[in-house]
Simulated scan of single mutants.
Amino acid sequence: MPTEVQGVIARSKDAPVELTTIVVPDPGPGEVVVDVQACGVCHTDLHYRQGGINDEFPFLLGHEAAGVVSEVGEGVTEVEVGDYVVLNWRAVCGQCRACRRGRPWYCFDTHNARQKMTLTDGTELTPALGIGAFAEKTLVAQGQCTKVDRGAAPEVAGLLGCGVMAGIGAAINTGGVTRGDTVAVFGCGGVGDAAVLGARLAGASTIIGVDIDDRKLRVAEGIGATHTVNSHQTDPVAAIQELTGGFGVDVAIEAVGRPETYRQAFYARDLAGTVVLVGVPTPDMEITLPLLDVFGRGGALKSSWYGDCLPSRDFPMLIGLHVQGRIDLSAFVTEKIGIGDVETAFDKMHAGDVLRSVVMIEGARA
């Protein structure tokens, strides 16, 4: 029968979030109920609260989550009760033209659970990115669950569900960074630092972190940046060219989502270099570039959605590297908080004080 649990909702635009009782239905065909153990506080959740995604309030926030499958619906074959899983917001269909061409990371028909979670008065909730994991339990489609090694703590594993995967994938999957490449990452927040880690993992020889906050630049150095540039104090394009023999980088990753930083990334790359946009712009933003410069520099201008990842492939691989001690995903966890502390976590995010605050759901292991 349906279960009542505690969850964090955004009831209306810019209103403080609320911890309230939500109703999770029994899983239907192809659906799964997950006992959430931990969920990261992502900037996308704040965008939902601010009405920057859509106006389908109230939202059940949270999407960077790990937990344990507690119930499965009819026809579920990909996971079973007791599996330790990371949740993802792009459950591929396997049937669209992208999937049939062997490119499921571009799936054009990703899906979520068909049923809605609700408030106790029956008001339907819109789960953030189809997940809604600032809650003790959540209902998702089976394809949104990826089984991973239990050796990774939930506060670490869950971050692959969005920001960390987006950054690592922007470097490796979208940018195609490989051994000996030079890379610049514009914006050293959680996604940008994950791109730094991805570039290091791929064997880049030079990794340049660019930000206006020296605190963030120091963190980027700890994760793998070989050089840093404070773009508030120095022209980043000139500095990057100086660090690369006057040429610019092979791959420039923009992890801010602003026209001015995209322009810097565009001009900071070498001839035939690649620009990757992984920062999320707002609908009003526009950029103008001389078409001759676009033509004359060659290379590629790409956008990276979720790091062009395939969760079933990438999540277990990255968790395995973490468990083996080859990468340290725990470096992205700044603090662990309670489910009632999400609004305070948003404030810390605004101030640039955290890479990730992670909500620990009561009953999750430490």
Rank of each mutant, 00 (worst) to 15 (best):
V8E: 04
A10V: 00
R11Y: 13
K13G: 06
P16K: 02
L19V: 02
T20F: 00
I22R: 09
P25H: 03
P27F: 02
G30N: 06
V33K: 04
V36W: 07
A38P: 04
G40P: 09
V41P: 02
H43A: 01
H43Q: 05
R49H: 13
N54E: 10
F59C: 02
L61N: 00
E71N: 15
G73C: 06
G73T: 00
T77G: 13
E78G: 15
V79T: 05
Y84M: 04
R90C: 03
V92E: 11
V92D: 12
C93K: 10
G102R: 02
H111S: 08
R114N: 13
K116M: 12
T118L: 07
L119R: 05
T120Q: 00
G122V: 00
T123N: 11
T123S: 03
T123P: 04
T123C: 02
T126N: 06
G130P: 01
G132K: 04
E136I: 05
E136T: 01
L139D: 03
L139T: 08
A141S: 12
T146L: 05
V148L: 12
D149S: 11
R150S: 08
A153T: 07
A153Q: 05
G158N: 03
C162W: 09
G163N: 03
I168A: 08
G169E: 03
A170I: 05
A171Q: 00
A171N: 02
I172H: 14
N173D: 07
T174R: 13
G175V: 11
G176L: 11
R179I: 15
T182H: 11
V183R: 08
G190T: 07
V191T: 06
D193Q: 15
D193P: 10
A194E: 11
A194M: 06
A195P: 07
V196H: 00
V196K: 06
A202Y: 09
A202V: 06
A204D: 11
D214P: 06
L217Q: 03
R218P: 14
A220T: 04
H232V: 15
Q233V: 15
Q241R: 15
L243G: 09
L243N: 10
G245V: 04
A252F: 03
A252W: 00
G257D: 07
R258S: 15
T261D: 09
V275R: 04
V276E: 01
V276L: 05
V278A: 03
P281G: 11
I287A: 04
I287D: 02
T288P: 12
L289G: 02
L291N: 11
L291G: 12
L292R: 13
D293G: 05
D293K: 03
F295E: 13
F295L: 12
G298F: 02
A300Q: 08
C309R: 15
L318C: 05
L318H: 13
G320M: 14
L321Q: 10
R326Q: 14
I327E: 00
D328M: 10
V333A: 10
T334N: 06
G340P: 08
D341N: 02
T344R: 13
F346G: 01
F346R: 10
K348V: 03
D353N: 12
R356Y: 03
S357E: 08
E362W: 10
E362T: 07
G363S: 00
A364F: 03
